[in-house]
Design a protein around this nucleic acid. Sequence first.
DNA 1: TTGTAGGCGTTATCAT
DNA 2: ATGATAACGCCTACAA
Lengths: 347, 347
Amino acid sequence: MATIYHVARRSGVSTATVSRVMKGGTGFSAATRERVLAAAGELAWVPSGSARGLASRRTGIVGLIFPDLDNTDEPGQDSPLYFDQIIRGAERAATAMGDAVLIAGSRCATGRDLVFSVASKVDGLVVLAGSLSKRDLDQIGRSVPVVLLADRAAHRGMDGVAADNRGGARAITSHLIVGHGYRELAFVGGVQRAPDSMERFAGFRDALKEAGLSIPEAPAALGGFTESGGELAMHEILRAPRPPEAVVFANDQMAIGALSTLRRARIPVPAQMAIAGFDDIAAARHVRPALTTVRQPMRDLGEQAVRLLFERVAEPDGARRAVLLSTEVVLRRSCGCGARVRAGATS
Amino acid sequence: MATIYHVARRSGVSTATVSRVMKGGTGFSAATRERVLAAAGELAWVPSGSARGLASRRTGIVGLIFPDLDNTDEPGQDSPLYFDQIIRGAERAATAMGDAVLIAGSRCATGRDLVFSVASKVDGLVVLAGSLSKRDLDQIGRSVPVVLLADRAAHRGMDGVAADNRGGARAITSHLIVGHGYRELAFVGGVQRAPDSMERFAGFRDALKEAGLSIPEAPAALGGFTESGGELAMHEILRAPRPPEAVVFANDQMAIGALSTLRRARIPVPAQMAIAGFDDIAAARHVRPALTTVRQPMRDLGEQAVRLLFERVAEPDGARRAVLLSTEVVLRRSCGCGARVRAGATS
DNA sequence: TTGTAGGCGTTATCAT
DNA sequence: ATGATAACGCCTACAA
């Protein structure tokens, strides 16, 4: 395998000059440049990333840590699709800076192992909420810059970016109340203490309070963020003596599951019961009736997180930042809206 | 930042011993091990990935090159979702071997350079069909092992894995003919010379031929693999003097677009026209009527590609291999099937 | 504009 | 079981 020495010899210059040409700045004649590039091409030489990283102390890689990229083998069971969008956003932002993205599920590797295999290979890390324990997070934060994604548990000394879950939930709930006149509303959460679920529930309560309606202590049901969980949750709700006029779900997948239950129960949506979700996954448009929901700027989340990371890498001691991205209500038929219109953004 | 020297000094051993302990094999006493680990922990030391890579000639990273991770800002326009599944499969296989996955889109402005910079950071590359020109591919193949994904244009001396597109298309078309008795079938392709589209069309023709029906020279229409393209393609088909009884689409997104057109035209599916797609994306289950389609084992594709890559890295001169993964027909309502049953696999 | 040379943090090969 | 030390391939002052 060719090295910089071979290229230098072949093009009749020093390794320093080869290095300069490869870096792309200035400090060499056009003729030299051509000779070097030609030699590099002939030898099929690519500068070693490892050697470069070692000498320059930059790997040109940003890492992305997920809670668990695939815990299910059920093909139909789409595990959180928003991961994918986040990856895309991150990839875009990184590519724009000439960096690449390293992805790793935290699944089997915990703490030290992960630090090992990933932290040492990157210039910085974007960590999704729920990927790491606080302990591991702190430890990893000691060896590389870290940006927290969708994790409002603002950790000491770490940058973070998140979507305005609360504002979005508040906005869509207000729409149901003000726009359609519903007075009996219920909320279906995901998992017991999941931050996302809790924030959205808080927004739901904000809207009820604002409208002077009585506000529940807890979600009417929990659906585990899955489609089947949503079906069950809806069954639970239908068993109540007096079912609500409208139900807000903590995510789209549960809402879609609920639509199945309602169809089987021959309860017309939205005529007899209005439904709203959260996320705006692709299926939300295809389901009948099309699902009214709140769009999260997932791609932007990934993009902003990487940008923030670059800033931190460039200026390690700068003030920490917390970026909040606004969400957007997407009105479709399931809430009672006739057409598919978009309402304003929150925050 | 701590280095191996600091750790060695602090634990009273040589750097060689620290290195051995970190590698995890044997060749040191338990007591030594403890001391080293303790020192490493206290100093928050993580072995530098670059230095490791330089010395050992292994980065512990496999690269994944895509045609273009996101060329659209249209949130509804899901660019090929199967990328995501492939990423997941690759991540899983790599993690199982203790490696990480580096992803990079290729078509953006800085794409070409990026690809080469990625090549130098990884032990091997999985390249998706359509990411690189043959020239670039050959060149890159000279500096790292490459596995081609979903690219049947069997390149000289490269391993490859792909799905059985032709067999899948043949199987679903046969189902329409044999299972439902349709005799007038049409095929809608994606892009003019796209390999996927062509292979699926070939499978479609295989089935017609087998049934003794007349086989068309070319697809009845082209829909560019997009939903809106599918809508247009269906309009085109409806303009024909004698529309077909069943239409097979080169992918699900186009088929879903076609369903919209048919709904607006008040043509009942499958009663008056049966529809079949390809891929089995998530939306295929949610659309009404639910879409009959062919499932591609996308996750497996990613997984197998990475496995193959590891084999090649371990044994650079082994015989090249071409892996073909079987597809599976998924019967839903759009073809005329009453229930949602699964038929057998191909190949 | 170009060359010289020291160092980046590990691993691996010999010794012991 | 452990230590000394030469690579590993590149970058970057510093010189010329």
